[in-house]
């Protein structure tokens, strides 16, 4: 059942992605001020929003684990965080390439970029911490606490370009300020849907591995007991 869902999500995501890339590169004109590089928006912004979506799933599941002590929640949380980390890295790299052309620099330590980098590093810490804790309940509990703690950074990333008293190199939120052409809105939304579909397929694959991991742990205990 899960394998079927992975294939359906993967195929649907790939087909929609092909259609969306065709729309972006053939159907839409270049951005007036930035030229072709402005189309980086179609991967940069959906990657960030997809990452936040999966971080949110991880936080909900982490709370779920702390309340119920059910390891299924822990498995979903770690799977969602690994996928979210991938999309956060996509966001950081594409943003850096865009910045190299538009700003003339690869990176600057302003609030938006730094808080997004912090988000990536905090959840990287989460992934690096897990193998260091051997006992399963302790590992899942510590991981859940760290996942919730690290999520406190996300509102800072979102608000970094909305605060009036903060000077930032990053552009204002174009979707809310009407700074994006109406014809660009559907491909942007479709970019998000595509990444969520592909990300969900990856989460399901990762989830299966967590299930096998638990089976391996119980077999090891059984071996010790024999």
């Amino acid at each position: 059942m899960r394998d079927k869902a992975v294939y359906i999500l993967g195929i649907l995501g790939t087909v929609l992605m092909a259609w969306n890339l065709h729309t972006i590169f053939v159907g839409l004109g270049d951005e007036a001020a930035q030229g072709a590089i402005g189309k980086m928006l179609f991967i940069h912004v959906p990657a960030a929003i997809t990452a936040y979506t999966f971080y949110a799933v991880a936080v909900v599941c982490s709370v779920g684990f702390l309340v119920s002590k059910d390891f299924k929640y822990d498995s979903v949380a770690v799977s969602a965080i690994e996928v979210a980390q991938t999309f956060t890295l996509v966001n950081l790299v594409t943003g850096s390439i865009w910045g190299h052309i538009i700003w003339g620099i690869w990176w600057t330590w302003d609030l938006r970029l730094t808080s997004q980098f912090m988000c990536f590093m905090l959840y990287l810490g989460y992934l690096l911490m897990r193998p260091a804790i051997v006992e399963a309940t302790q590992r899942a509990t510590m991981s859940a606490i760290l996942a919730i703690f690290a999520a406190a950074d996300i509102p800072l990333v979102v608000m970094a370009i909305r605060l009036h008293n903060v000077r930032t190199q990053h552009p204002a939120p174009v979707l809310e300020t009407g700074g994006v052409d109406p014809t660009w809105r559907l491909p942007l939304l479709m970019g998000y849907i595509v990444l969520v579909l592909i990300g969900s397929a990856l989460v399901l694959v990762r989830l299966r591995q967590e299930t096998v991991h638990r089976e391996i742990d119980s077999l090891r205990r059984e071996l010790h007991a024999i």
Binding site: D30, Q34, G35, A36, I37, K39, M40, I43, H44, A47, T86, L89, V90, V93, T94, I97, W98, H100, I101, I198
Partner: peptide, 17 residues
């Protein structure tokens, strides 16, 4: 240059995934 770096951006994104 714009198009080249746009290509680099999308390529990097899919290499990461």
């Amino acid at each position: 240059i714009n198009q080249t770096y746009l290509f680099y951006g999308y390529t990097a994104a899919w290499i990461i995934v």
